[in-house]
Design a protein around this nucleic acid. Structure first.
Length: 506
RNA sequence: GCGCCUGUAGCUCAGUGGAAGAGCAGCGGCCUUCUAAGCCGCCGGUCGGAGGUUCGAAUCCUCCCAGGCGCACCA
């Protein structure tokens, strides 16, 4: 079921005899919607764009949904919509309810999103949290589109890092310094103070932190379980021996270099992590996922081509493997910057961030920027529970609506539009009409930040509407209650897609 | 040296071919009315630079400048 904007565009396409795309002009003088189709058509039809625009405008003005159509500039057609359009758009939103904008995927896929995947040698850091925020939001978007999504956490339970971690804890228990390159810090001392293997404890803490961050994993993959199958996959790869080691000829499959799979005897003759990568990648696809998404920090960008090469070597369609990269996170506080870097030891943990600014703000600020952007979070601003903070601005709009609907009791809710739809009502409905497009784009581009940014616009339009018009006991009460209901559903959905709560009271 | 990412208002950032935006910061207004965590107004930009493609470029192409991150028989 196409949304109201798409449907209008389709009708205009028939009139123009070519695909029409509608956009919302920034300047209200340019109409409620506008199209540049005449400009696009002018060269092929060998006619002046304004002349074409004129014809399209006249035809468009004849539609029930169109109140007025004007030609402007070099050949834009600017449209103003009739109450009938707003009524139908709102009716569709109300009918769809919570599912408004959902289920657009044409083919249902089984998708795995592997995220965070930090070795449990310490608490989850803010950098890993961004990984989780992006991965989880993408997973929510895919599920909302209609796909079957599973979240997986992969960690190396058998490598040198885990050994070093255990040795560090042991050393402290003996009253010694941790080994060079070992692990230090308060959490290591705490683990040393307890009995037994620190790894399961650390793992439980990691899981608890992520649950608090509202990420729930469907499965946990262990490197030790995959290592045993390396021998099974070696013959399926394009390999050769050099300097006593076994190499993958990955450069012939799109990678930048060939890679060592099995170390030379002097180095122990053991499989490298890349050999396990091969097993894991195959394992994902063997488990029946149509698509496997890796969420990786930008410092791993070099592995993107590697994964594609592995897929090709194994005969899989590389399109089934996606690597989502995201840039670093910096925290600031009153101008003084704290760098997020394990190496410099200035680690900031996700739990500390959530303690300080709350779970909602943490989710919001880690998801509201494009993955390609290095982001900076001002902890002081993010901790403010005021209008300065967009997350509360959006939540407040939701809570306000909830208040109105509470007061409305069982009053009638209707999409039936009055003869005069006010500018603030028109803007709000047009905004809500964008929602299906917003989720679609955020999903396909794997850019969840489009959702919170859009939610701010919705809250904007709602607050403006609220300020200018009374809902209860107004002439248009049923219509405005309908508008409130649809707005609440969209805001709630946006917040849910970001992993933020939608409170009924604030 | 090579590769990836980034450069848009004082700051943090949206905007992937159509008529430059938001939040914060700064200045000024609005609470006997469904939540003032709200609304309204002002200030502020040669979209890093130079070429190119196009009727049209912040957006696409090339080069340059600046910053970040990578270029292991570590993970």
């Amino acid at each position: 079921m196409p949304d109201a904007v798409t449907r209008l565009a389709e009708r205009l396409s028939e009139l123009a005899g070519a695909p029409v795309e509608l956009e919302r002009p920034n300047d209200p003088v340019h109409g409620e919607y506008a199209t540049n189709v005449a400009l696009q058509l002018a060269p092929t039809r060998k006619r002046p764009p304004r002349e074409l625009a004129e014809e399209i405008a006249v035809a468009a003005a004849g539609l029930d949904d169109v109140e007025r159509a004007e030609v402007a500039g070099p050949g834009f057609v600017n449209l103003w919509l009739a109450p009938a359009w707003f009524e139908q758009a709102l009716a569709e939103m109300l009918e769809a309810g919570k599912d408004y904008g959902a289920g657009w995927a044409e083919q249902r896929e089984r998708v795995q999103v592997e995220m965070v995947s930090a070795n449990p040698t310490g608490p989850i850091t803010v950098a890993s949290a961004r990984n989780g925020a992006i991965g989880d939001c993408v997973a929510r978007l895919l599920a909302f589109a209609g796909h079957e999504v599973e979240r997986e956490y992969y960690y190396n339970d058998s490598g040198t890092q885990m050994t070093l971690f255990r040795e560090s804890v042991e050393a402290i228990r003996r009253g010694e310094e941790p080994p060079e390159n070992g692990y230090r810090g308060e959490y290591v001392a705490e683990l040393a103070g307890e009995e037994g293997d620190p790894v399961p404890k650390m793992l439980a803490q990691v899981e608890a932190t992520l649950e608090r961050f509202r990420i729930r994993f469907d499965s946990w993959a262990l490197q030790s379980k995959l290592e045993g199958r390396v021998g099974e996959f070696l013959p399926k790869l394009d390999t050769y021996e050099k300097d006593g080691a076994v190499w993958a000829r990955s450069s012939a499959y799109g990678d930048d270099d060939d890679r060592v799979l099995i170390r030379s005897p002097e180095k122990g003759g053991t499989p490298t992590y890349r050999a396990v990568d091969v097993v894991y990648l195959a394992d994902k696809l063997e488990r029946g996922f149509n698509r496997a998404i890796y969420v990786l920090g930008a410092d791993h960008h070099g592995t993107r081509n590697w994964y594609a090469a592995v897929a090709r070597m194994l005969g899989y369609d590389p399109e089934r493997i996606e690597v989502l990269l995201y840039q670093l996170v910096h925290l600031t506080r009153g101008g003084a910057q704290a760098r997020m870097s394990k190496r410099r030891g200035e680690v900031v943990f996700l739990d500390e961030l959530m303690d300080e600014i709350g779970v909602d703000a943490s989710r919001w600020y880690l998801a509201n920027r494009g993955p390609d952007q290095t982001i900076e979070i001002d902890v002081d601003l993010a901790a403010e529970r005021t209008e300065k903070n967009p997350v509360y601005y959006v939540q407040y709009a939701h809570a306000r609506i909830a208040g109105i609907l509470r007061n409305a009791g069982a009053a009638e809710i209707s999409a039936a539009a009055p003869a005069d739809v006010a500018p603030e009502e028109r803007d709000l409905i047009k905004r809500l009409a964008e929602f299906p497009d917003v989720v679609l784009e955020a999903t396909e581009r794997r850019g969840p930040h489009g959702v919170p940014n859009y939610a701010i616009r919705v809250a904007d339009d709602f607050h403006r509407f609220y300020h200018h018009h009374r809902v209860l006991e107004s002439d248009a009460q049923a219509f405005r209650l309908g508008l409130c209901t649809a707005t609440q559903a969209v805001i709630a959905r946006c917040l849910d897609l970001v992993g933020v709560e939608a409170p009924d009271r604030m």
